[in-house]
Nucleic acid binder design. Structure first.
Length: 448
DNA sequence: TCTGGGGTCCTAGGACCC
DNA sequence: TCTGGGGTCCTAGGACCC
């Protein structure tokens, strides 16, 4: 038996833990740039505000004065998530943290009723210790457990917020009612494709021939069908899976076209990727940089592109990664276009203990590693971004094409830190605001 | 005016090898 | 007329998830 624990309206529930006056009223948590709704309270859902609703369209559903809109505080959500996972871990077998607000695990008993009691106790404990409401579904496969958790969440009469789907007749009945796109693994495209053939429920989907599913989708679609039929076929992920890719990207406050401005952003994305690699005691060998225009602006020519480079060896050095991210950027940047978003991704990641010493760069790597450790220590102690890469000093090495650029990079923060207090279109900060922003330490940022 | 960010897996097709 | 066969690796793109 698999169980799926799913936090209800997670980001909103976290905010309510710290501010009970948010209970009972419509609350929406917004994405970065305060762009769109990424979590909604039940009251906000009842107003019809859809997931992903752009913030400026909320007025189409209700008077915005009725809705409390909050910028996301993801560090807080991560912390509460960790506490919840720890509590689940006390009773769970093979806990598999699937996302910040969801976890799969296996149940100890064969008996559905005993499992149900165990889970009901767990839900209460999380509510009491952390204050976040959680719903739990359980069944023979993860896909069915997921459906069960939806049922647990949606049914107001179910005070335990636990639902088991273990009886074959009940499963058949439930599937005949569930809309296909509510099934885990069926997204927009597949739903549309299947709908056009009259397949609108999970029940009908389970009767389709495997060969057809393989043709219109891939092996995963076949697996989804098997899972709905009660056949477990999603392999278990070990508890701690190393990342296979790490990405850092931002939508800018508005379109920009200056090469140097974008390059600054690329450097800071690369820096963040490197930092996360070091946190995970890992290193990457492949860097991808991508840039793209604003697809909402019909009045501007649209261009998007990406470039992937393999570095000479695995590295977690901000300098190595930034250097290659910039080289990649130089390959794809085109003048006379405007850009709205950029990002850096690192792949081919290996943990430090898997890595062999590179005979040719060994000494250099060791020096870089020491330097990076020193920077991490300083930043941990005195606040993020006390030491950052200065593109102005290194541009000659990194990207000769940038040589003609003006020398200053004070704008770095606008693309990266995205201060939670900074809301609105791009504009340069005053020195005062900047000092303020830099984590309110007495020190102003040290620029190397 | 205003539309997020970060992941995973699978497949097809090309380059390259013998 | 007729143009080998089989394999690996890499990448881009598309689907999905939260």
């Amino acid at each position: 038996m698999y169980a799926l624990a799913d936090c209800n309206n997670f980001f909103v529930s976290c905010e309510r833990v710290f501010n009970p006056s948010l209970n009972g009223v419509p609350v929406v948590v917004l994405s970065g740039n305060d762009g769109c709704a990424i979590a909604r309270s039940n009251e906000a859902k009842a107003l019809g505000i859809p997931m992903g609703c752009p913030a400026f369209q909320i007025k189409n559903y209700t008077n915005p004065a009725n809705v409390i809109m909050l910028s996301g505080r993801h560090v807080v959500y991560r912390d509460l998530s960790n506490r919840i996972m720890r509590i689940i871990g006390e009773v769970a077998l093979n806990l598999e943290v699937y996302s910040v607000d969801e976890a799969f695990f296996e149940l100890p008993y064969d008996d559905a009723e005993r499992n149900k009691q165990l889970l009901a106790t767990l839900v209460k404990k999380i509510q009491q210790y952390v204050g976040v409401p959680v719903s739990i579904g359980f069944a023979a496969t993860r896909t069915l457990a997921k459906i069960a958790s939806h049922i647990a969440k949606k049914d107001p009469k179910n005070v335990d917020r636990v639902k088991g789907l273990t009886d074959a007749d009940e499963i058949r009945q439930v599937l005949s009612r569930i809309k296909l796109d509510d099934v885990w693994g069926i997204g927009r495209k597949l739903n549309a494709k299947l709908l056009s053939s009259g397949i609108d429920t999970a029940g009908k989907f389970t009767m389709l021939p495997k060969s057809y599913l393989q043709r219109i989708g891939n092996i995963n679609l076949v697996r989804t069908q098997q899972e709905l039929l009660g056949i477990d076929c999603i392999s278990i992920n070990p508890v701690t899976i190393a990342h296979k890719s790490i990405m850092n990207s931002r939508t800018f406050g508005h379109v920009i076209s200056k090469k140097r401005d974008i390059a600054d952003a690329i450097i800071s994305f690369a820096q963040s990727c490197a930092q996360q690699l070091r946190q995970e005691s890992a290193a990457a060998q492949v860097v991808t940089t991508y840039i793209r225009g604003d697809h909402f602006r019909q009045d501007l020519p649209y261009y998007s592109n990406s470039c992937t480079l393999r570095m000479p060896s695995h590295t977690a050095s901000a300098m190595d990664i930034a250097k290659h991210a910039l080289l990649a950027f130089n390959n794809i940047y085109r003048e006379n276009f405007t850009y709205r978003k950029a990002g850096v991704m690192v792949t081919d990641i290996k943990s430090d203990d898997q890595l062999q010493l590179d005979l040719f760069n060994g000494e250099n790597d060791a020096r870089q590693a020491k330097l990076m450790t020193a920077i991490d220590n300083i930043n941990n102690r005195y606040g993020k971004k006390q030491i950052v890469l200065a593109p102005t000093l290194t541009r000659g090495d990194w990207a000769p094409q940038l040589n003609h650029l003006a020398t200053q990079s004070k704008t770095l923060h606008f693309y990266t830190g995205m201060s939670p207090r900074y809301i609105g279109p791009y504009k340069p900060m005053t020195q005062r605001e900047e000092d303020d922003y830099d984590t309110k330490q007495e020190k102003s940022p040290v620029t190397e």
